[in-house]
Amino acid sequence: MKYSYYPGCSLHTTAKEFDISTKVVLRELGIDLKELDDWSCCGGSVASNVSHDVGMALAARNVVLAQQESRDLLASCSGCYNKSAKAAKALETETEKNKIAPILAEMGLSVSESNIRVRNVVDVLAHDIDIAPHIKKPLTGLKVACYYGCLLTRPQDITGWDSPVFPMAMDKIVETCGAQAVDFRSKTKCCGGPILETKKDVALDLTKKLLDEAKDLGADCIVLACPLCATNLELRQAEIEKKYNVSYSMPIIYITEIVGLALGMKPGKLGMHKHVVSPKRVLAKVN
């Protein structure tokens, strides 16, 4: 299987461990990733607030580049995946396509008739590969809270997941790896990331609720596929602990890192040394 790979801005900066683990894990599982030539920001964070059409064209640009390579586009970041999937859908809709195409033309690109799918790494791991035969080191005894966040599964007509509010794909991957997926009821609730700058107190409270539930369930870590959620849950932990006089030290781990550990890969090869909250307690348990 071959995919055009779109890392997006975060995976080349604050979420390098996600980029590293995505590449080495999928390579180990026999999937060929070719990083999209000349990819650019999907505009997911702010572009649409300035202009819907320009914002959609920024995401569509990467879709068109993947069309030229005749490969489905794989985006690990849930935000990039969501925005790119919406752009791919827009290119199939005549009225939206007519708005986007002139902007793409100014970028020197034309829309191809070759429709491609935009995929997320969780979706690919769950549905395109049988991971089980590759497991070398089952993660027995590890309790995991799978967190999907707002963008990975919604809207359902774009993403096509099993459920927009209580999906199970990531849970099944974790269990195939030998770990226990706890019954994390907040798995698709917002972490507050998008409002962190404008309503910080509200954002921190939302993040705290996720950490509280994971801790109450006895989870050893929270596993996810969103760099923005990871930033909130990992980088804000110390601030939340101080503000509310609580203690977590909860590792925030990308799903590709969990799979990599089960494949027998060394933590350093997966980029796990780059985490802010140490994953040592997770590594100690699986070792």
Rank of each mutant, 00 (worst) to 15 (best):
D201M: 07
V202L: 14
D205C: 01
D205L: 07
D205P: 00
L206M: 15
L206Q: 14
L206Y: 14
T207K: 04
K208P: 01
L210K: 14
L210M: 13
L211Q: 11
D212T: 02
D212M: 02
E213W: 11
D216P: 00
G218V: 04
G218M: 07
A219T: 04
C221Q: 09
C221L: 11
I222S: 05
I222Q: 05
V223E: 07
V223Q: 10
L224K: 00
L224F: 05
L224D: 01
L224Y: 05
A225E: 08
C226S: 11
C226H: 06
C226N: 04
C226L: 06
P227F: 11
P227I: 06
C229R: 06
C229I: 04
C229D: 15
A230Q: 15
T231W: 02
T231H: 13
N232A: 13
L233C: 03
E234P: 01
E234R: 03
L235T: 13
L235P: 00
R236G: 00
Q237L: 05
A238F: 05
A238G: 01
A238R: 14
E239C: 01
E241V: 03
K242V: 03
K242D: 14
K243R: 15
Y244R: 06
N245I: 09
N245Y: 08
S247K: 14
S249C: 02
S249E: 14
M250Q: 12
P251V: 11
I252H: 02
I252F: 03
I253Y: 08
I253S: 03
Y254C: 00
Y254F: 13
Y254T: 00
T256M: 09
V259L: 01
A262E: 12
L263C: 07
L263M: 11
L263K: 11
L263I: 07
G264N: 10
M265N: 09
K266R: 13
K266V: 06
P267F: 11
P267I: 10
P267Y: 12
P267W: 13
P267T: 12
G268A: 09
L270I: 10
L270K: 10
G271C: 02
K274F: 03
